[in-house]
Design a binder for these strands. Sequence first.
DNA 1: ACGTGTGAAAATATTCACAGCT
DNA 2: AGCTGTGAATATTTTCACACGT
Lengths: 252, 252
Amino acid sequence: MTAQRNELNAVSDNADQRATAVSDQRAIPDATVARLAIYLRALTGLGERGTATVSSEELATEAGVNSAKLRKDLSYLGSYGVRGVGYDVASLTEHIQMTLGLNRNRAVALIGIGHLGQALVGYAGFASRGFRISAVIAADPALVGTRLRGLTVQHVNNLNEVVRSEKIAIAVLAVPASSAQDVCDRLVAAGVTSILNFAPTVLNVPAHVDVRKVDLAAELQILSFHDNRKAARADCAPFAEVAPATGAVSVR
Amino acid sequence: MTAQRNELNAVSDNADQRATAVSDQRAIPDATVARLAIYLRALTGLGERGTATVSSEELATEAGVNSAKLRKDLSYLGSYGVRGVGYDVASLTEHIQMTLGLNRNRAVALIGIGHLGQALVGYAGFASRGFRISAVIAADPALVGTRLRGLTVQHVNNLNEVVRSEKIAIAVLAVPASSAQDVCDRLVAAGVTSILNFAPTVLNVPAHVDVRKVDLAAELQILSFHDNRKAARADCAPFAEVAPATGAVSVR
DNA sequence: ACGTGTGAAAATATTCACAGCT
DNA sequence: AGCTGTGAATATTTTCACACGT
């Protein structure tokens, strides 16, 4: 059947785990955290359309998952639904934002302003979903000092000061693979502990630093694999392509 | 050591696979498929540096995973290693490429040429890893007909012809969320069965179509969550930040 | 010796199915 | 009557640990 849904990237995990023994506020599974971001997106949409309440079934459809998974996920945050009724859109939105730490608007530094970097600076989706790019950093001296979307491009040597003065929480790495590790090391030295890496290379970081990556070509390769499979299957069973046309998320 | 604790990012999975019942050449788990792309990247690097043979330990470090996982993953492809020696870089590279269906160079259509779309057209990583953007499509009539990186921008109404004439295998959706579903429907109608979606919205597609998504803001939100956790932990245990600097993946 | 390949164990994640609240 | 919250069942993924080939 092949389903269609999206499902997400998973996560890292970074052994949190006991430590401090107490205060161990129920750990939220990584897979759940990744989906919370999607639920939030769906909730925001619902809120804008004026919906005040949603059932797990509706929200699940909206988010492209099944309702049992959604309820289980939300149950890790506590009990914010009302039996027989559903979830209050506004308060659930707020709870998820809180859980993801989005209450304080987080400052993001972008390093590397090639094609991709420039696209990211202009990406409206960051601002609308809790992030503000507060620093743009490049290695090329020719670019330093120029202005981009209201920000003055800083040199990578000033990383320390920029990170400190702008209180950078997260760095987005959009530099070539060849310099990614070097820049990453500097970021870590400057105190950054969360990095989103677009360079097609594995970053080496100390244990307290979180790295997530987006590998565009890898995504296409994964699609390619499945496509290949479909083609092979079609060869064997030329009439298999029935496909319910609009199928809900279904899966099953 | 070079620790490889990156270990993060996990994977996504996207459509399930199985099915096919018969001719079910040992099904490769989704988690494995997603990592094959990473191994391939690492192998390419090793090949270029002249390495002829790698052990699972070395390749795993290079790819940021642990060696048991790597061996298990590769075992799904068959036996391409030599006990006591390791894997032949060239032949393993080829086998993974074959498995991912990268032997034939796949044509990709890009729909939407805003900031992100333009960055993607120029992204060298696609070409170098088996994909060629062979069509660029926009909805804005003002853009249609202009040239971009050697390609003439086509109108979205010509989707059918373009998909057919260029033998498009995969479509990359870089349009605003508001038109994503509409464009997606047209793509499906034109026969596209693999879509990489950058729009922050869930796409509804029939079961035979595969969708993977990249949600940039969601990635930042996930980092934000972990960052928040780290901060909370630091509050309770101010001296916890020992971080073995290079420690293994830990997590136990 | 060395390092792959793999069963078996452990850890995670998903789905089922229903008790219990509104 | 409807829908959440969740134990229990299932499925998937990761890790261990070691037999076995070279």
